[in-house]
Nucleic acid binder design. Structure first.
Lengths: 252, 252
DNA sequence: CATAAACGTTCGGAAATGTCGAACAGAGTA
DNA sequence: TACTCTGTTCGACATTTCCGAACGTTTATG
């Protein structure tokens, strides 16, 4: 289920460099030995990779260990730019959070996973939501299921071949037939519900965001503890916001 | 003034991979041929690098060209985490923007450059400021000069050896003696002024943010068009905020 | 305080792999 | 139809990366 780098015609050295980056990103701070151990490579090899990243200014030495540098912040902003271009997306997320008084988020599909792009808690204006940038299996979140339901069948097949249906809680859908039934219901209703399928005790309501051409652009959702999330009441709000985004595309 | 990659014991392949990433980040969208041309490498080589990045999910194909993927957004968040840890930094920036009614920003020193980490316009709550993540020569901005003034002399020497004193406008300080004099004045007053040294017609007032140990942690500044930026009046505000951050460190 | 352990660093050699150029296929254009 | 522009694949050479061992330094430990 995981590509073995060099197997696919890729560059194994570049591949390893990316692994080093991931090691540094998945924890805060690592030394040469730690990187070497985690990737099962020689210390001298890890050292060479770290030196490459350091000389280029991509990583930083702090408290004696290496950390990802702010150059990645710049790359992250560049990666997000296509969405920032359409400023109404983020605005709609904040609007949604204000009106629903719970968290609202916009996720984009990428490489068959869902990625948090915008997130808001409403008036609280919580600074820097830590979940932005996080990738999550599409079948385990409301916005993701809403997107999945719009994909053609063969794309869903390919997605499951690549990633499977990993469980995140006891409630996560792990069975293909069950998923198909769920997607069918979502298409009928126009919105998706997540009942603790990603985090215990978190309910969410999501809808797909489509372009005027009918392509899947992303997914919107609101989420919170079950007693604050009334699916019936919120569905219209979320679908309405998704539709408004779709309409905005035409006048941009 | 630019390191020539392989010269320093780094891995030339990994180095090239980073160059490919930078090409994609510095413009929106590039094809195989375009990347190859810009880096002056064979098309097949560029193809191999792009494939490596693609297989790993770091880049995306959209409209027939490659773009940076949202995985960089995740890495960017991870890189920013050390600052998010101290939530009062971002809060102070927003406070500063509210009180001054102009832009406020926090910059961190990294690899001898200044990097925008937080930025706020006050109540407008402008979504996604595009300048976050941007790197800029320290001597050309107020917060950067404020930090420079706190560095020991040999660190300033090393910095200038590496980056020089590039001009961004006609007003940018490009002479070492002039810089030294400016830094001395900054130390005396406790704050720095930027008079169109980075952007024509933009004035800024900045102060260094120190840790309780006296280390330079970053720089705060407010900026706007000259008639809205009164240095005398704003200096206390900025220095006060910088000092409050320093104090917060002790109770965290 | 001395010793040990752990870390980061450097170095050469053998093996693996990245790079190139040419050739192929496909899309778009004249 | 022919042309030009893409992106892609392939093989062969030469360059590189990688490893392991050894070194110098720092941090723990007795």
């Amino acid at each position: 289920m995981r590509e073995d780098a060099a197997t696919g015609g890729g560059l194994s050295t570049g591949d390893r460099l990316l692994s080093v980056i991931e090691v540094l990103g998945s924890q805060d701070g690592a030394g040469v030995t730690e990187v070497a151990d985690q990737l099962e490579i020689a210390k001298s090899t890890a050292h060479a990779h770290l030196r490459t990243l350091y000389d280029r200014g991509y990583i930083v030495k702090r408290d004696g260990t290496y950390h990802l540098g702010l150059r990645f912040l710049q790359l992250g902003q560049a990666a997000k730019q296509p969405w920032d271009e359409y400023s109404f997306i983020e605005e709609k997320v904040e609007e949604l959070a204000d009106e629903s008084e719970i968290r609202a988020q916009f996720l984009a599909p990428e490489h068959d996973e869902a990625v948090y792009v915008y997130r808001s808690t409403g008036r609280h204006s919580v600074p820097t939501d830590s979940r932005v940038g996080v990738r999550i299996p599409m079948h385990s979140v409301a916005a993701g299921k809403a997107m999945l339901a719009q994909f053609p069948g063969d794309r869903v097949d390919a997605l499951i071949d690549r990633h499977g249906l990993p469980a995140r809680t006891d409630e996560t859908i792990t069975d293909r037939a069950e998923l198909d039934a769920a997607l069918e219901r979502i298409r009928e209703r126009g919105y998706a519900i997540n009942e603790g399928e990603s985090w215990e005790g978190v309910r969410a309501v999501g809808a797909p965001v489509l372009t005027p051409d009918g392509d899947v652009f992303g997914g919107l959702s609101v989420s919170g503890s079950p007693h604050r999330v009334d699916p019936e009441g919120l569905a219209d709000l979320v679908m309405g916001a998704a539709n408004e985004i779709k309409l905005e595309f035409q006048y941009e």
